[in-house]
Simulated assay, not measured.
Amino acid sequence: MALKEYPDHHDAELVLKLYELRREDVMRDSRTQLIAKFLPTSFEDVIAVTKGDHPLNAAFRQCTSFWEMTYAMARHGVMHADFMMESNGEGLLIFSRIEPWLAEYRAAMNPIAFRNAEWVAKETEMGRLIAERFRKRMQAHLDAAKAATA
């Protein structure tokens, strides 16, 4: 699979379309809810949000499927990956909240879950930078949660 070497006007059009989609009311509400309220401290917290009766379940499904679709475009060369990541890193914030339990999640739920987010986080320059920033935030959250229960 050949990745795009340079971004072009088609990449710009796709990035602008992704921005428009993120502004849609349901998507905006889902993003707001998930970013503010989905702060897992255990694998059980991650699995809980996948249950249909969890208050964040719809937001979780909306956001994770949107970001996986977006990152798939980069992974498959539809869009220049680093160009796309410059304005679409939010999905890695959500990924960073699942990543500590990713192997368990895949074993329990779906063996290919979050593979596109994982790819951009590891295989693109911008993704690595963004993911590292979010991983530090997540680690601080986990450290604070551990200290609060100690």
Rank of each mutant, 00 (worst) to 15 (best):
A59K: 08
L21G: 02
D82V: 00
Q62G: 10
T64P: 07
P55V: 08
R75T: 13
R22G: 02
G52F: 10
A72W: 11
H80K: 01
G52P: 04
M73P: 06
T64S: 06
L16Y: 11
T41N: 12
D82A: 02
Y19H: 09
M73W: 10
G77E: 04
P55N: 00
D82W: 04
Q33H: 05
G77A: 01
H80T: 08
R61D: 13
W67N: 08
I35T: 14
T50M: 10
A59F: 01
I35A: 15
D29I: 12
K37L: 15
A48K: 06
G77W: 08
D53F: 05
T64R: 03
I47Q: 14
V49N: 12
R22A: 07
H76V: 11
K51E: 13
P40G: 07
A59D: 04
A48P: 04
L21F: 11
H80N: 07
R61P: 10
P40W: 07
S30A: 14
P40C: 01
P55K: 03
L18A: 11
K17T: 06
N57H: 15
G77C: 02
E44M: 01
A36V: 03
M73E: 06
S42L: 07
A58E: 01
L56T: 01
L16E: 09
E68V: 00
H80Q: 05
W67V: 15
A81S: 09
A74C: 02
S42V: 15
R23T: 07
L18F: 13
L39H: 14
E24C: 05
R31F: 14
M84W: 08
R23V: 09
D45T: 12
T70D: 05
A74T: 01
S65A: 00
F83Q: 04
F60A: 02
D45H: 12
V78A: 14
F66A: 00
D25Y: 09
V46S: 12
T70H: 05
F83Y: 11
T70M: 08
T32K: 03
L18K: 06
S30V: 13
M69A: 13
R31Y: 06
Y19P: 00
M73K: 08
D25S: 14
F43H: 13
R22T: 07
I35E: 15
A58D: 10
R75V: 00
L56Y: 04
V26C: 09
R31V: 13
K51S: 09
M79G: 13
E44Q: 04
M27P: 04
I35Q: 13
V26Q: 10
H54N: 04
I35P: 11
E24P: 03
A36P: 01
L34D: 02
T64H: 06
A36M: 03
C63K: 05
N57S: 14
R23I: 03
P55I: 00
R22C: 08
F66M: 01
H76W: 14
I47D: 09
D53G: 06
K51T: 10
R22I: 07
L16F: 09
T50H: 15
P55S: 00
H76A: 09
A58R: 04
